[in-house]
Design a protein around this nucleic acid. Structure first.
Lengths: 146, 146
DNA sequence: TACCTTATGAGATTAAGTATCATCCACAAA
DNA sequence: TTTGTGGATGATACTTAATCTCATAAGGTA
């Protein structure tokens, strides 16, 4: 479920950035979805209610929301960047067939201290990416084979 | 280190695909590199020796090599797809500053059976993606701050 | 060597994302 | 409430990543 309007207002205020209608709508759209939309997915969804919003504005609003940590980018095997509303740490399952990305919970992996020690990388975030077939595509594949 | 030519020939033969000079060169380039190049990185590197190779051919050779499982795509936060020569399972560390992707070994996470059980996804592969700063960018950041 | 299938090169095309700039809006201060 | 100002927006041009098309060339087999 999406956060309240108050939450958005106070977050933007604390960062010193104006909360425009466009940013509000983009955030609400991503936060209310179950999938992990691309910028174009958001543009198309938002256009129904707000046909005047420009594509460039969607990109800029998404960038802004990532900057202030309300959204995050999801690492992807395709060419378009996907977005995700920030929430508790979770991992992702990519369907190699249809490209859908589902949230999964793989638990706390306790890997971060080890990395810092071994490689000198600072670790801000990590996520586990699984690839395989979602239930629907497994079914479709089975049907095609018969 | 790259595999021998015999290995390439037998792999292509078993898949019924012709092993062209272009495919050989593209594979050798990716396999011999320590980084995780984009298609354009490969194109530029290969062009020094083979200025006649077309950009489209590099893309097609990379696709082909992924199909027959000699290369894999690396999930990425940026816009261009990166490639990696297949080897033992390993994970990736992404530098949020310069975009470099390094190999890391996070060990066997034993997550696959759980996923199958909980979500109905079949899991073919998975990898852990870490994000943070590589040692060079940590240094650069420190210098800028002073 | 000759044949057939598939790949290649060149360049047009599409898709994803960024840059520019005149105008407009959010928001704070008066 | 009005006004001032920095930052955001819309339109559009541009860049970059990747794909498509098709005539020609090369691989692999007989």
């Amino acid at each position: 479920m999406a956060h309240s309007t108050d939450f958005l207002e106070s977050t933007f205020k604390s960062k010193g950035l104006p909360l425009t209608v466009q940013r509000r709508v983009v955030y609400q759209n991503v936060a209310s979805r179950q999938d992990h939309p691309t910028a174009d997915d958001v543009y198309l969804a938002v256009q129904k209610e707000h046909p005047d919003f420009s594509r460039a504005t969607i990109y800029r609003a998404l960038d802004c929301l990532v900057q202030i940590d309300l959204l995050s980018r999801v690492a992807s095997f395709g060419s378009a960047v996907r977005y995700d509303a920030k929430q508790e740490h979770h991992d992702h399952m990519h369907c190699t067939q249809c490209g859908q990305v589902a949230d999964v919970e793989a638990g706390d992996l306790n890997l971060l201290p080890k990395l810092k020690q071994d490689l000198g990388f600072t670790v801000e975030t990590y996520s586990v990416h699984f690839r395989g077939l979602c239930p629907e595509c497994q079914l479709e594949k089975t049907n095609k084979e018969n």
